[in-house]
Design a protein around this nucleic acid. Structure first.
Lengths: 150, 150
DNA sequence: TCGATTAAGTTTCCTAGTCAACAACATTGA
DNA sequence: TCAATGTTGTTGACTAGGAAACTTAATCGA
């Protein structure tokens, strides 16, 4: 027999709950900069390595090509990202941050810092490091088994 | 100056990435039972404590009243949940699992077990326990500061 | 060299949420 | 007792993302 207490004993459940809370609060914070969490994620991925084709972003962000297509278009419309058509392949293009986009990065990063501090500041240094370490192990693992999302 | 490596060093970022992967895979698993992650979450919340008014579920699940209203209606349509009108308050009602809904709980719980095992099985017992402990601390903390979502 | 297949992005349709306006009912206080 | 205010849940407009069909271009193989 499955007892009620067992049912809440899923790590995935707690993770979703905490992650949602963190993301929700972060969304609130960045909305002041007229940016969504997905947009920040997109911009940061670009910052790490640009110019980048949408297909690569899709894989890195775990989103579909369609979603990236729309998200990219929104960011271009906001003037934070720009496209460069490829000469080798007329279907393809690559994306980069604009000067304005690049300028926003430190501001948004500061908000992310603040959000992290707000949520994870209750942990001891040891707990926080352990959490980071564990999340990286899991993310890395995901990388290996990642089924193409599309 | 903010360096590129700092930007991926947000715990919230990794948490969202891992949580999304876990939830996505879980969604795939439960879709075989014709249930969504939100529906499972709803049913489990009910299982813990029924009958429950929608307003309480909304708070417990961190969703808006509107979302709960629609989610509940879907579950009633699927025959997994039933409403009972309140006599004291003619606006209100409460929700419970039907026999069919209750019967599904162990099946879905088994899928959640499998999903947890699949993702968190790579961790050592010590790491897994630590992760659970930390997530509970964070969830509890969230509880305290939870702004009504609506 | 040209048809078939594959690849890169876009678009359309659908689902599931939020938000805000709302209707119905309850409560409270003069 | 009844108007003002608060509460419960629903609805409609809107948004973001997924799935799959589609367009266009590249590549591959006889």
């Amino acid at each position: 027999m499955t007892s009620a207490s067992e049912l809440t004993d899923h790590t995935g459940y707690w993770m979703r709950m905490v992650s949602n809370a963190v993301s929700h609060e972060f969304a609130r914070k960045v909305s002041g900069e007229d940016v969504t969490v997905a947009e920040w994620s997109f911009m940061r991925a670009l910052y790490d390595c640009e110019p980048t084709p949408p297909s690569v972003l899709a894989e890195r962000m775990g989103m579909t090509k369609g979603a990236i297509s729309k998200l990219g278009e929104r960011l271009v419309a906001k003037g934070l990202v720009e496209r460069a058509e490829s000469q080798q392949d007329k279907r393809a293009h690559s994306l980069s941050l604009t000067t304005a986009g690049r300028a926003k990065i430190p501001i948004l990063a500061a908000l992310a810092d603040a959000n992290d501090a707000e949520f994870f500041g209750v942990l001891t240094k040891e707990e926080h490091e352990m959490l980071d370490r564990i999340l990286r192990i899991l993310a890395e693992r995901r990388e290996l088994k990642a089924t193409p999302v599309d």
